[in-house]
Nucleic acid binder design. Structure first.
Lengths: 149, 149
DNA sequence: GTAACTGCAAAATATTTGCATCCTT
DNA sequence: AAGGATGCAAATATTTTGCAGTTAC
């Protein structure tokens, strides 16, 4: 029963994530984190509402996502369309060792967004006078899944 | 009278841009393009409304920006906050030779966004299975102007 | 003159806020 | 029991659409 097992693993991870961040363990938080774990990619606010069905209020989704961003549980992926997409870093689970130096990939076919945790952000050299603090890379193309079909 | 001269240069460029893209030369289009030329950086929808004063309708701004994006006169810069920012590529003026392979820079102090036309997008190597079509790089830090102060 | 552009009104969406109630610890 | 989280209602903000009048060519 692999399905069951996965769920259990997710349950544990969800609880750990919430507890570690001093957040009370509530239904909507658990549900939303599970959605991220199942998705294995990025979710926009709208995706979450859809996937969650009629389960909880739109306002709760806004507030929960904001809380997660504040705590560093999820991060925002910059996109060119209006939609803010959020993703749970795969390496978030490695206790406090927060490094989001990975790049993002948007599949133009299935429209999913992935964190490519294994691809390190390249070095960028700026002109004189600019002080660089952070580099964000978003790539676009066809993802593994879509290419395999 | 350098101010006058700049305006004239802008005027010419604005007219050329519009004509080249088969767009009729209207007040709002000229005004908005001038704003981009004066700004020398990115503008969000809201910025344009502010800078333009009470000059024209909000709807016109939406429609004009959309038209410019469709024609490739301006491009969208992906950001992590909700705001869509648009920028006129410096090299747009080199007739039809459209290459947007530059990176973007957001100043966390003055909150301006610039196209760094001289910085070429770095190579990115993706895992097997992914087909890459486009790479977008947004850097963040303190810009030349703010550092010089 | 005609097609395209603009402005106004209004609809549709998206986001935020306040507050009473419920749930977690 | 107490503080925080949720859900509902409503206020704001943002974006889209339709249409009539105006303008560019």
């Amino acid at each position: 029963m692999p399905e069951k097992e996965t769920t259990t693993v997710h349950d544990e991870r969800v609880n750990r994530l919430l507890r570690r961040n001093n957040l009370s363990i509530t239904g909507s938080r658990k549900k939303i984190l599970h959605l991220f774990l199942e998705q294995n990619g990025a979710l926009a606010h709208g995706d979450i509402e859809k996937k969650a069905g009629e389960k909880f209020d739109r306002v709760t989704v806004y507030r929960t996502l904001q809380t997660f961003v504040d705590k560093g549980i999820i991060h925002i992926i910059p996109t060119a369309d209006n939609s803010i997409r959020y993703a749970l870093c795969k390496d978030d689970c490695t206790e406090g060792h927060h490094h989001d130096h990975h790049i993002h990939f948007v599949c133009t076919q299935c429209n999913n967004t992935y964190c490519l945790d294994d691809v390190v952000t390249p070095e960028v050299k700026l002109p004189n006078g600019y002080t660089i603090a952070h580099v964000e890379v978003v790539t676009e193309g066809i993802c593994k899944n879509c290419n395999d079909k």
